[in-house]
Amino acid sequence: MIEARGLTKRYGGTVAVEDLSFGVRSGSVTGFLGPNGSGKSTTMRMIMGLDRPDAGHVTIGGCPYSGLNWPLREVGGLLEARTFHPGRSARSHLAALAAGGGIDPARVDAVLEDVGLASVAGKRAGTFSLGMAQRLGIAAALLGDPPVLLFDEPVNGLDPEGVRWIRELMRSLAAEGRTVLLSSHLISEMALTADHLVVIGSGRLLADTSVAELTASGRSLEEAFFTLTEAGATYRAERSR
């Protein structure tokens, strides 16, 4: 459903993502794994058309994000926790997005209920804790009932109950046949949630494989991850020479 081909993004002289190609299939949770600063967020922003790649392209169902007819009904994204105005209530924020996305306004209260924010829906969102802000971001992603979902570090700021809720939400969204791309730097969480993994380091693809394959030789996912990222680091060191 999501196809990235040769994605490259530089900020000034710094390369954030370099020649990155991968695919994300429907019906499973694809984990997007990499150390902090490895280019995960940049890649997700390029998928959603917020950052423009310097080279390469990325499509969703064969179409670039900017070409989607009803973007919020086709792709839901949680890119960072706070993408709402602190003076606006959670309900107004979602109502505005529903209007912009051509989404039935009844979905607003439905998703607020789903993420557990129904009781604070009328409060100014600026008063929300990080965990509540994450829940509002997830509500916004689910608003259009989209077949493709992107979540960038969704468990940040959530308590253990919230972490489990996210895990079950991701699994159930994938079980409904949706495409779910979930980024995290928490390897243990990935091991519990993802079926497939796209691992990047320094903006380059290190592995595009199933969790089962990566841990096949009896290694833990964590060991496998460090083997991969060390290989990436060696590559970096060689290149800079």
Binding site: N69, R73, G100, G101, G102, G144, P147
Partner: peptide
């Protein structure tokens, strides 16, 4: 699989303006 009822057309100024009005 279609999760939301398919909708013809394309977003436009009407949707964008309603969103800005609510904001």
């Amino acid at each position: 699989t279609t999760y939301a009822p398919a909708r013809a057309g394309h977003y436009g100024l009407r949707q964008a303006a309603r969103m800005e009005w609510i904001k």
